Amino acid sequence: MDVFMKGLSKAKEGVVAAAEKTKQGVAEAAGKTKEGVLYVGSKTKEGVVHGVATVAEKTKEQVTNVGGAVVTGVTAVAQKTVEGAGSIAAATGFVKKDQLGKNEEGAPQEGILEDMPVDPDNEAYEMPSEEGYQDYEPEA
């Protein structure tokens, strides 16, 4: 019985440690998101679009440190934060509304985080759909 109880105690310690790591990862992701939003706020009209992409990228980098179902929630929060940063930029006159959601080359930025393969159960990952990809044929 002692062996059984000791095993359960060790398992509990492992769960607590994993929860603490997840909590730490979420806190880091939130900190990076805040950094990115402050970065966007300090940019001029020309830099705002690039700044919004930076927020998304920093958040995406930190999301990889967070495991399990938390990833889905962090990704949703990050996307809403990026959308909010863009709205703030438009409201303050840093950028025109028609410039939001495009990178410096004018290509749409939507789907940055949505296409990231995420499995809350950590069982399997699927690649994003290939609808947006084109076949590449090298020139002879």
Rank of each mutant, 00 (worst) to 15 (best):
M1D: 01
M1S: 00
V3N: 09
V3M: 07
V3L: 08
F4Y: 14
F4H: 00
F4S: 00
F4K: 01
F4P: 00
M5H: 06
M5A: 02
M5E: 01
K6G: 02
K6C: 06
K6H: 09
K6A: 08
G7Y: 09
L8N: 00
L8S: 00
L8W: 10
K10S: 04
K10N: 04
K10F: 00
K10Q: 06
A11L: 15
A11Y: 12
K12M: 02
K12R: 03
E13A: 05
E13S: 06
G14D: 06
V15D: 00
V15S: 00
V15K: 00
V15H: 00
V16Q: 15
V16M: 09
V16G: 07
V16P: 01
A17Y: 03
A17L: 05
A17F: 08
A17C: 12
A17V: 03
A17K: 08
A18K: 03
A19P: 00
A19W: 13
E20M: 07
E20V: 04
E20H: 15
K21R: 06
K21P: 00
K21S: 08
K21Q: 06
T22N: 00
K23N: 04
K23S: 05
K23R: 11
G25A: 15
G25L: 15
G25S: 13
V26A: 05
A27C: 02
A27T: 07
E28T: 06
E28I: 11
E28D: 06
A29C: 10
A29P: 00
A29G: 03
A29Q: 03
A30T: 10
A30Y: 14
A30F: 07
G31H: 03
G31E: 02
K32H: 07
K32P: 01
K32D: 01
T33K: 02
T33I: 07
T33Q: 00
K34E: 10
K34P: 00
E35W: 13
G36W: 15
G36N: 13
G36E: 04
G36M: 11
V37K: 01
V37Q: 00
V37P: 01
V37R: 00
L38P: 00
Y39R: 00
V40P: 00
V40N: 01
V40A: 12
G41I: 07
G41Y: 10
S42Y: 04
S42P: 01
K43F: 00
K43M: 03
T44E: 00
T44H: 04
T44K: 01
K45N: 02
E46P: 03
G47R: 13
V48N: 00
V48T: 02
V48L: 07
V48D: 00
V48P: 08
V49D: 01
V49I: 14
V49T: 14
V49A: 12
V49G: 04
H50I: 11
H50C: 10
G51H: 01
G51N: 06
G51L: 14
G51S: 09
V52Y: 12
V52D: 00
V52P: 01
V52T: 00
T54H: 10
V55W: 14
A56R: 13
A56N: 04
E57T: 08
E57K: 14
E57V: 06
K58C: 01
K58W: 02
T59I: 15
T59R: 01
K60E: 01
K60M: 05
E61Y: 14
E61T: 06
E61I: 11
E61S: 11
Q62H: 07
Q62M: 10
Q62T: 11
V63H: 00
T64F: 06
N65L: 15
N65P: 02
N65M: 05
N65H: 11
V66C: 07
V66H: 03
V66P: 02
G67C: 06
G67Q: 03
G67K: 12
G68T: 12
G68D: 00
V70Q: 03
V70S: 00
V70C: 15
T72K: 08
T72D: 09
T72Q: 02
G73S: 06
G73R: 12
G73K: 14
V74E: 01
A76G: 13
A76V: 10
A76L: 11
V77A: 13
V77Y: 15
V77Q: 02
V77M: 14
V77W: 14
A78Y: 14
A78I: 13
A78D: 01
A78M: 14
A78W: 11
A78T: 09
Q79E: 10
Q79P: 02
Q79F: 05
Q79R: 01
K80T: 04
K80R: 13
K80W: 14
K80D: 01
T81H: 02
T81W: 15
T81E: 02
V82S: 04
V82M: 07
E83C: 04
E83K: 13
G84M: 14
G84A: 03
G84D: 07
G84R: 09
G84F: 06
G84P: 02
A85N: 03
A85S: 13
A85P: 04
G86P: 04
G86R: 15
G86A: 13
G86F: 09
S87I: 04
S87N: 01
S87K: 04
S87D: 13
S87T: 00
S87Y: 15
I88P: 02
I88Q: 03
I88E: 03
I88F: 07
A89G: 07
A89Q: 06
A89E: 03
A89N: 04
A89M: 13
A89F: 09
A89Y: 13
A90C: 11
A91Y: 14
T92R: 02
T92Q: 11
T92P: 03
T92S: 10
T92Y: 06
T92G: 10
G93M: 13
F94H: 07
F94L: 10
F94D: 05
V95S: 11
V95G: 03
V95D: 04
K96N: 12
K96Y: 11
K96E: 06
K96I: 14
K96S: 09
K97R: 07
K97E: 13
D98N: 12
D98M: 11
D98S: 10
D98H: 07
D98I: 11
D98T: 07
D98P: 08
Q99A: 12
Q99N: 07
L100E: 15
L100V: 08
K102V: 05
K102W: 08
K102L: 05
N103I: 03
E104Q: 02
E104V: 06
E104R: 12
E105I: 09
E105P: 11
E105A: 12
E105F: 09
A107K: 09
A107H: 09
A107M: 07
Q109W: 12
Q109T: 14
E110A: 10
E110K: 02
E110D: 05
E110L: 01
I112Y: 07
I112K: 13
I112W: 13
L113W: 01
L113M: 07
E114R: 10
E114K: 03
D115V: 11
D115C: 09
M116D: 10
P117A: 06
P117R: 06
P117G: 12
V118Y: 04
V118R: 12
V118A: 04
D119M: 05
D119T: 15
D119K: 12
D119I: 03
D119Y: 11
P120F: 08
P120G: 10
P120A: 07
P120H: 05
P120Y: 09
D121T: 06
N122K: 06
N122S: 12
N122C: 11
N122I: 08
N122M: 05
E123I: 15
E123R: 08
E123T: 15
A124M: 03
A124V: 13
A124H: 13
A124S: 14
Y125S: 11
Y125K: 07
E126I: 05
E126G: 05
E126H: 14
M127L: 13
M127P: 05
M127V: 09
P128C: 12
S129W: 06
S129I: 03
S129H: 08
E130R: 01
E130A: 13
E131N: 06
E131P: 12
E131Y: 12
E131S: 11
G132H: 05
G132E: 08
G132W: 13
Y133F: 14
Y133G: 12
Y133D: 12
Y133N: 09
Y133R: 12
Q134P: 13
Q134W: 14
Q134D: 15
Q134K: 10
D135F: 05
D135W: 06
Y136I: 02
Y136Q: 14
Y136R: 12
Y136S: 13
E137W: 06
E137M: 11
P138D: 15
E139T: 03
E139Q: 13
E139W: 09
E139P: 08
E139I: 08
E139Y: 02
A140K: 14
A140R: 12
A140S: 13
